[in-house]
Design a protein around this nucleic acid. Structure first.
Lengths: 217, 217
DNA sequence: GTCTAAACATAGCATTGCTATGTATTGTGG
DNA sequence: CCACAATACATAGCAATGCTATGTTTAGAC
């Protein structure tokens, strides 16, 4: 061990890859390193190839997602919070649709699945709170419900970001989540209000989800 | 116009592309035409390039999907039928996951959107029937409900086929659809039974869904 | 029967990811 | 303080990719 590997280069390349994805520029080996001063070999010493770069980029996507979800301010109403988490999920995904696509592209695994679990845990905590205060029945499977909420969010994002559905279709999120949470025992009228509260603050602004003025794309 | 374009070549190439996708072989210009006797230029005369081939392949995917959905035997219970259509959707998508991915890959449009609409119409008809016999309220937006059902199906397929969720997660479809249809006014117990009936016949068999000996693609 | 436009085949282009080889650099043992 | 060695890095070149330019053949119109 003589020449030390500079960890800054790693994050620089990941950052640049995410940036190029966001700008919809084709991310190729040579275009990635162009202008950074590092040579193409850096991609191989740091990531072992383009596949490794994509894997690291996907990892970064999950880390950012978890950060966004954990930044969602929670309230005393766990059902509202579930809707808010869903809205933040959509907001984050639609703010960087290409990064989102890479995250769920097939063929690659995560090097650290814990990053994905953290996002799920945000949902699980809210679900447990809802059970504790009697909004949800005690026999609801928290993991199943979290997965179902995730499915709704992913389905919406996927169909909107990838094409067929228009942006307004994101509005379907609220009634779908409402129906789901009512099926867990929540009172219909109360549930509707809670979901609306958590959902509406920011259904589709591009930037950060909560507590700051919606910015222009 | 002198030498006529042979339409058989077109379908041959699309068929072969779908076949190679299914076999998980990389579909490249040269590998596609290898063994078919046609040269690489055929891809350009018939499709204008690889992008055109993908567009045609995606189109074919939607045609097959519509055919599968229209082959689902309907009953007197429209809610059962909705679940059966959902199950057929999942079955078709998971039987050819790579074709499904191409169908929803971004960047390309359909040359004939009617093919996609046909699938949606299957759902719309069932929803209208459910309203007619009083299972759903008359004020439910049929298109919205169809879109929501689609979102659930697509979300499930996407998360299962693309990796993160295991195959058993497909079972979440029944409770999600049940919750959704109950929110449209259906009686909870009746709805559960109907969805179970339509869903369970074939939750995840690979081949064709219903009432006919699985045909080779 | 000839002519012409379209289909088709061949060869070559730039670009892709990747690897083999050589050079420079830096922590360590004496 | 210096020689060594292992590692990071740069360069050049590889096969394979999609695509295009340039013939060559074929089939319909008059």
């Amino acid at each position: 061990m003589v020449r030390t590997r500079d960890p800054a280069v790693r994050t620089l390349l990941i950052e640049r890859a995410a940036q190029m994805l966001r700008a919809r520029e084709p991310v190729t080996l040579r275009s990635l390193v162009a202008g950074t001063g590092v040579s193409t070999m850096a991609v191989y010493t740091y990531f072992g190839g383009m596949d490794g770069l994509w894997q690291a980029t996907r990892q970064e996507g999950f880390v950012r997602l978890a950060a966004k979800l954990e930044a969602v301010p929670l309230s005393a109403d766990p059902v509202r919070d579930l809707a808010a988490l869903g809205a933040a999920y959509l907001s984050n995904a639609l703010a960087n649709p290409d990064l989102y696509r890479v995250m769920f592209d097939a063929g690659y695994e995560l090097e650290d699945p814990a990053a994905a679990d953290e996002s799920l845990n945000c949902l699980l905590r809210a679900i447990d709170r809802a059970k504790d205060i009697g909004r949800f029945r005690h026999d609801v499977d928290a993991l199943a419900l979290a997965t179902q909420s995730w499915t709704i969010g992913h389905g919406l994002v996927s169909l909107v970001a990838t094409g067929p559905l228009p942006r307004q279709a994101l509005g379907h999120g609220a009634p779908m989540l409402t129906a789901l949470y009512i099926s867990c025992g929540d009172d219909p009228a109360t549930c509707r209000r809670s979901v609306e509260l958590g959902w509406h603050p920011d259904p589709h602004p591009e930037t950060t989800p909560v507590s700051q003025p919606a910015a222009t794309t």
